[in-house]
Design a protein around this nucleic acid. Structure first.
Lengths: 119, 119
DNA sequence: TAGTTAGTTAACATTCTTGCTATGTCACCG
DNA sequence: CGGTGACATAGCAAGAATGTTAACTAACTA
């Protein structure tokens, strides 16, 4: 699967414009210093966050609470940043024992990088 | 030169957070369907725009007027999109004979792609 | 089952983005 | 040197993004 659909054309029009709306959505998700920091922290959850009792930092990523606290914003604000990243496909959530863990979607990220390289 | 400065650290703090604010600014410039279309059109100005009397489409790029018209927005709105792209470093303006031409900053774009690949 | 805790949703304020129209400014040209 | 055309700036309105606090939901725990 491609991170962003191929430049499909609207068959109802003869427009030669690629479908950039999905890419725009992903780029908007990425275009935030706070969310870029989250992605950076998630490169190494075990180093960037306190030890977790449940949920392996490597396998499942970091706990919502830790990320929100490190961001330094309120809990709803932090959760919304995470949701934006999840909705864009950049990170993957895992619910476990009442907590939610987040890890990077490395496959998506590398395909996105390739797509941007072809811009 | 790098499209976005290296992850320099603030010597006044022991923060391990890379400087993402510049990258955020570039990504915001990119995170617009209209501006993505402009970048796409500028891949081949001779094909995507009418012939120009002055200013070689290959060397200098496409004329402001043509881009604005193709965008389908008002002249100030179109000019602002171009300015955002220029300010981010994504396109290069050339003033000539009273017109302004724009071309892609391919060097910047490829370095940006590399930087995103390392996210 | 009752309480605590994680996380979402609601409601709202503030700021940023993007569009418009109207007006300036500056360079070319006749 | 005066007019015209290209582009920028000013000012405004609408919608999106981001932050807050308060209230709700759901799940673990004792």
């Amino acid at each position: 699967m491609s991170p962003v659909p191929a430049p499909a054309r609207d068959s109802a029009s003869d427009s030669a414009v690629p479908a950039f709306d999905r890419l725009e959505m992903v780029l908007k998700a990425l275009a935030s210093e706070r969310r870029l920091m989250i992605l950076d922290w998630l490169k190494d959850p075990a180093v960037n966050f306190p030890p977790q009792e449940h949920g392996d930092p490597i396998e499942h990523g970091a706990c919502n609470l830790f990320i929100v606290e490190k961001l330094g914003v309120s809990q709803p604000a932090g959760s919304r940043h995470l949701k934006i990243l999840v909705d864009a496909g950049l990170v993957i959530p895992t619910r476990r024992k009442g907590w939610t863990y987040y890890r990077r979607n490395e496959e998506f990220l590398s395909e996105l990088a390739a797509q941007i390289a072809s811009l």
